[in-house]
Design a protein around this nucleic acid. Structure first.
Lengths: 248, 248
DNA sequence: CCAATAGTGTCTGTTAGACAATATACA
DNA sequence: TGTATATTGTCTAACAGACACTATTGG
């Protein structure tokens, strides 16, 4: 930010510049039913609303009286829709133009969040639960036609997610606290839409500080599987395979 | 973006929400004098201005009448300061809070740009050339105390740049059209602040589609060096070394 | 014992890094 | 010829992927 002395006359008021609309949108992902899902909300049917009755990413105007920061605003949206308080939350980017919102020049700050599966029932959406819904999403996007430029934002979110899954531990945030390595691998495979090799996957995961064993096992009609948990509940691990330092 | 029916009453006007200030800032990098440099501008000395006389990233309010998009706004700032029209330009993120600007709730959309070295003389800054200056920057940041939260934004830009240099061809955008592999390697080393191994570097670069030979050579008091140019002038190359597909 | 999934081991290919050898210009 | 840098080659270590083998539960 900043006005610079040569381009803009000193003007301590903001009257010199017409202010764009400022919003925040969140692409909230989870894995359920063996598929990557994104949370969408249905916009009001009122005819004076832009994109009435269309599905959209949860979001809305920044409330300068309630939101201390942009991230606070995103967290508020997330909590309002899902009840989740501590998600993995990452800034995705911003989209701003004269044309993206019929109400005027508008800029949205987009985030994406990863959360463990939450049942559709517990989606909190005020009165009407049908207004918020998980929708399966593939590399191609989601079936619905979305409001605003949300199709583009969602596509960017999916692209970012898939790209980072290639070299980070992000999928761990899509699982509950304790999980088996097979479950973790399955989530990787769902997001990447391809199979991974078991042995290499386990070696790679265990070679990092990503997880610790718990004393518990997942029981089933077969050999029990070791349960693991994240070593650090908040920060993702980066699998780095790049240049290595050569000492001067 | 979006108001949703349950959280916000239908209000086609924007009066329901007080609008934050909307700005764009750009961290413009180049390599000169064997160092990574960032372009800073000095803010007006007027006492009614926030952070008078402080160094800051080039930026300013979005002008809804001139800027069709956020990126247009960033490109305009870049051109105003450097004359450069086609830089490598990437969105960095956004910073917004009630406290970052004394004039009120403010959100800035930050970009970073990579350009070939431009002489200090040709920095265009209206009347006073001393108001725009290249400053060397290390992993620790820049020496000056910057206006607003620009120190944090600059740190994020440097972090992002260094991270991406590990696995992309971004440094190529810091060089003129034609360059030798040694020159390219040197830029990598400057940004990463460590030496790279010559043979491995060349193998890696030539294994990709990054560059093509030109018929020209860089002459000197030694064996002439092959000059290369980028194969694609706009898109960076990603050196991927991650999971490889396993068929089904 | 069988089915099913968990977990391990062995081999191979790729590539980064270390380091040395060779190439080619000017002085 | 000497110096400086460009360019190539050889060897090794690390690790992902392929694939097969062993382990352990319930039925």
């Amino acid at each position: 930010m900043a006005k610079t002395q040569t381009n803009q006359p000193a003007a301590n008021t903001s009257s010199r510049f017409e202010k764009p609309l400022t919003t925040v949108d969140v692409a909230i992902f989870t894995v359920a039913n063996d598929a990557l899902q994104v949370l969408l909300v249905k916009r009001a049917n009122a005819p004076d609303e832009p994109f009435p009755n269309r599905w959209a990413l949860p979001g809305g105007f920044v409330d300068v009286n309630r939101d201390a920061t942009l991230e606070d605003c995103a967290l508020r949206k997330l909590k309002e829709k899902t009840g989740v308080i501590s998600p993995y939350l990452e800034q995705l980017g911003s989209w701003g133009s004269a044309s993206r919102d019929p109400r005027g020049w508008s800029a949205t700050h987009a985030y994406f969040a990863l959360i463990p599966a939450v049942s559709s029932d517990s989606l909190t959406n005020g009165a009407n639960a049908a207004d918020a819904q998980w929708m399966p999403v593939t590399a191609l996007g989601v079936k619905e036609t979305l409001a605003f430029d949300h199709k583009e934002i969602l596509a960017a979110a999916v692209t970012r997610l898939r790209a980072k899954v290639e070299y980070t531990s992000l999928p761990a945030f899509l699982l509950p606290k304790e999980f088996t390595l097979s479950e973790l691998q399955r989530v990787y495979e769902i997001v990447l839409e391809r199979k991974l090799e078991k042995s290499a996957f386990r070696t790679r995961v265990l070679a990092t500080d990503l997880v610790t064993e718990t004393p518990r096992f997942r029981e089933g009609a077969n050999r029990p599987a070791q349960l693991y948990k994240l070593r650090s509940a908040s920060k993702p691990v980066f699998f780095q395979r790049t240049f290595k330092p050569a000492d001067d």
